[in-house]
């Protein structure tokens, strides 16, 4: 507070800027005072602090799933053919080519106009998982498709190997993509998310193998599937527990239902795959379970993110706890 006066020679004691001083004694609202019971945390009319991801679930979760399916398939395909399981490798190659096409389509659809994808390739920004991912995709896509074409071995082999090498990156960078946001249910899970996505991708690829390959030749798929699905289940639970209170969104609402279904399917897949080792039908069923389970896992993760962004408490409480 400045005190000013008006004297014969002019004005004295002008305040700096317009820093009005305000009156002491005001206190923040206390539960006792207020009409509505004080919520355990404060917010601005319960409005979200973060903006919801603007992505469409079908496009982006779908993009994650098919990307993972493609990537893992390419890898398993090469491993399989190298170890004498041609019957398994072939469908996986086609599967990868198909899946990556669908995946790319989903991405472009979410962007709105195909032309906009090219802006992705204007620059390579290591700080942007989406930029890095776009380049990986740009390299992997052609390779995976090439590997599926009837090309002469000297051409086909390197393409298959390239796809096999890049496939896992395609399957896991999307985990970084979602984790590298302010969305609590995504970011808080960044330690486990890549493993969850890798496992989920493995299960999906294996599922595709079991569906398309006679039991005799599908051994690798069966084994990888069990590993993948188990990882998917285990990592998911670890992740949710470690997230603390934010983890609860994975058990609530739409996300909760999706995750439960996903877990049930992965589990069923494991059961069928092991028990029905000799049965084509049972194996195919296990494959379907893993494919569906993997897809639902991604949708579950996506939904959980949206739900956590919609409720300010998932932003406020962890940050307060962190303080």
């Amino acid at each position: 507070m400045a005190d000013s006066s008006v004297e014969r020679d002019g004005l004295h004691g002008v305040a700096p800027d317009r820093d009005a001083h305000i009156t002491p004694g005001r206190r923040r609202r206390r539960a006792a005072d207020s009409m509505v019971p004080e919520p355990e945390f404060q917010s601005y009319y319960g409005r979200p602090i973060l903006h919801q991801p603007t992505w469409k679930a079908l496009d982006i979760a779908g993009y994650f799933f098919f990307g993972g399916l493609a990537g893992a398939s390419s890898t398993l395909a090469v491993a399989a053919s190298a170890t004498g399981h041609p019957a398994l490798a072939r469908p996986l190659r086609y599967g990868a080519a198909g899946a990556i096409t669908v995946s790319a389509a989903a991405l472009v659809h979410d962007l709105g106009r195909p032309g906009r994808f090219y802006n992705m390739l204007r620059v390579l920004k290591p700080s942007s998982p989406m930029s890095v991912g776009s380049w990986i995709l740009a390299a992997y896509g052609p390779a995976a498709i090439g590997a599926a074409l009837p090309l002469p071995a000297p051409l086909g082999a390197p393409l298959s190997v390239a796809a096999a090498a890049l496939g896992p990156a395609v399957a896991t960078y999307t985990a970084v993509l979602v984790s590298d946001t302010a969305v609590p249910a995504w970011h808080e899970g960044y330690c486990e998310m890549p493993f969850l996505f890798a496992g989920s991708a493995a299960a999906a690829a294996s599922g595709l193998g079991l569906v398309t390959t006679p039991v005799s030749g599908a051994g690798p798929a069966r084994r990888l599937g069990v590993i993948g699905a188990t990882a998917e289940l285990a990592v998911g639970r670890v992740m949710r527990r470690r997230m603390g209170m934010v983890g609860e969104v994975y058990e609530q609402g739409r996300a909760g239902r999706l995750v439960k279904a996903a877990e049930a399917l992965s589990l069923a897949g494991i059961g069928l795959a092991v028990a029905g080792r000799r049965s084509r039908a049972a194996s195919a069923a296990a494959g379907v379970c893993w494919l569906a389970g993997s897809a639902l896992t991604r949708f579950g993760v996506f939904e959980a993110g949206v739900q956590s962004a919609a409720d300010p408490k998932y932003v406020v409480e962890p940050q307060r706890a962190g303080k």
Binding site: G71, A80, A164, P194, A221, R223
Partner: peptide, 18 residues
């Protein structure tokens, strides 16, 4: 972590095939 997971995926694929 993504890199480890990716390598893990390759490893698992190879292991299960072999």
């Amino acid at each position: 972590r993504a890199a480890v997971a990716a390598v893990g995926l390759i490893g698992a694929a190879v292991a299960s095939s072999i």
